[in-house]
Design a protein around this nucleic acid. Structure first.
Lengths: 166, 166
DNA sequence: CCGAGATGCTTTAAGCTTGATCTATTCAGG
DNA sequence: CCTGAATAGATCAAGCTTAAAGCATCTCGG
């Protein structure tokens, strides 16, 4: 829930030029949250898991040699404390394992177990189907254009962020 | 954190047609989360508040006559239990008040206090500046096009959702 | 070689969120 | 008028998330 100050029904006519930015922001939020809600709900009801766990397993699936906690933290863009708790849960379910890192006794290397690999493959297939279906209303050209605009919005926002002081 | 199964660095060349949908989804997520993170951080450090509270106050600012809990729940798209906790916190800080609803003894009407109105006006101005700045890298035409594509993506996704079984 | 600073991971408190459940109240139909 | 169903809001357990603090370990410069 992260709705900005804007007219009663979200996407209404802007009061001024500046409101376009607020409307874009609001639409980004509602689109993202709508798809996220569907995905979260499906993962919970069909696989008894959660989206953060799924995402973490997705990162591990792409790195068969495993990832360190701080690498997971960076890739997933969440804090180390959060990664610790999610890895704890997955380890408890036997889906991942913590392996010692010989070159650094502070660190661990997290890897999917065999059970975790099978489980993830199953969920990933369904996940892709859901996302494809939810976004299938856009034509090929519209999808390409949306990708391009989101990429531009992101890179410009990143520029602004690096220029801003906290 | 809701990253899907996709190539190591997020926005890489799709393996197949279906991956375009995943890439769009991923870009939606990273754009949204990036802006959200900035806004949350600013609200916390400069105003000692949180984004959900800001959003709730935004809804109340537009309804001077107040809103019932279930109306807030619907507008903010979160569960009633969540609204209860956030209203509790804002009431404790003297920013909102719960008024009896004469026609229904089960219900309350939530309204901003004078203090809450002043506080919100202050934050809303800053919030709009931040969002405008973060999205200012896009041209006017690109912003219009992004709004249009997000609207189309949303309406199509809504259609799919209403057709899907849970 | 040693000490200060940095790093990796964990723990803690606080906040948000959901879905299920509970109590009090309202409403509609017989 | 009465009863069963629905509704409004609160509570609870579980999960995610952050920022800050703590401990163990590593690195680098003097």
């Amino acid at each position: 829930m992260a709705l900005a100050a804007i007219r009663t029904d979200r996407e209404t006519i802007a009061r001024s030029e500046d409101h376009r930015a607020l409307r874009i922001w609001l639409r980004l939020l509602t689109c993202t949250q709508m798809i996220e809600r569907v995905v979260r709900s499906r993962l919970r009801s069909r696989y008894r898991t959660t989206l953060p766990r799924f995402d973490l397993m997705a990162q591990l699936e792409r790195h068969p040699e495993g990832l360190k906690m701080n690498e997971l933290s960076r890739l997933l863009m969440v804090t180390g404390g959060n990664v610790t708790a999610i890895v704890d849960q997955l380890e408890k379910e036997g889906l991942v394992e913590r392996l010692d890192e010989p070159s650094d006794r502070r660190a661990f290397r997290i890897r999917l177990t065999k059970s975790g690999e099978r489980s993830f493959t199953d969920m990933a297939r369904a996940h892709e189907e859901w996302v494809v279906e939810l976004l299938s209303g856009l034509s090929r050209r519209e999808q390409d254009e949306l990708l391009r605009l989101l990429a531009r919005a992101k890179e410009h926002a990143l520029e602004r962020i690096s220029e801003m002081r906290p």
